[in-house]
Design a protein around this nucleic acid. Sequence first.
DNA 1: TATCTAATTAGAATTTTCTCTAAATACAAT
DNA 2: ATTGTATTTAGAGAAAATTCTAATTAGATA
Lengths: 108, 108
Amino acid sequence: MGFQETFKALSDPVRREILVLLRDGRMSAGDIGAHFDMTGATMSYHFKQLKNADLITETKEKNFVYYELNTSVFDELVMWFEMMRGKKNEKIDMGDSTVPADGDGSGG
Amino acid sequence: MGFQETFKALSDPVRREILVLLRDGRMSAGDIGAHFDMTGATMSYHFKQLKNADLITETKEKNFVYYELNTSVFDELVMWFEMMRGKKNEKIDMGDSTVPADGDGSGG
DNA sequence: TATCTAATTAGAATTTTCTCTAAATACAAT
DNA sequence: ATTGTATTTAGAGAAAATTCTAATTAGATA
């Protein structure tokens, strides 16, 4: 959904590797899982995180589930990183609310 | 050091917000901490993660510690993301070792 | 219907991450 | 030397993430 989910999803090496696999095109859950030394249940957990982060999309066919990269999210990420390394004072809003409510009135 | 530390560091909203603050230039640990509703010890923990990920550098002056953005890591990240959304079959090596040792000899 | 295959969900165990309090370090100023 | 300020380190508790086994869902096939 937001950046939080996306960054969280990308923080796990298994999930990043799944994304790299999907660069070559869509794959079934089972075929992806064959590349890892983990149970299907665990793989399913990771697919869910990636779906939640909009990094992959899922389509069902027969009794298979296929996953595919959603590259549009990468576009947004690239923009964020370019903003981070770019000129100062460019407006930026991450949607995070980790700043206190200016309790001392100093206005920051 | 590697991508793993970098992505892990970026997965926390407090740490991303610290980076955004540092876009305006270097700041002391205390000044950064003033933007958050957390103890100095906790802030120090986050600084350590960011240093570990090479996302910030530290310089000591008098009894202050100043932190500064290291934008070169963002360059690498942008490259990674552009590779992810780009043409297939481009060589990619993330340094992760999450793939099993091809125990069945199928070779993938 | 019964059974097989593909994949997910549920629940528990383990590990990791985040945050705090208390104590320690380092430098500055009295 | 003592006190004060800025920051980190140590250790512990709470919360979140990762992984497993067992059970479940859903469709395909005999």
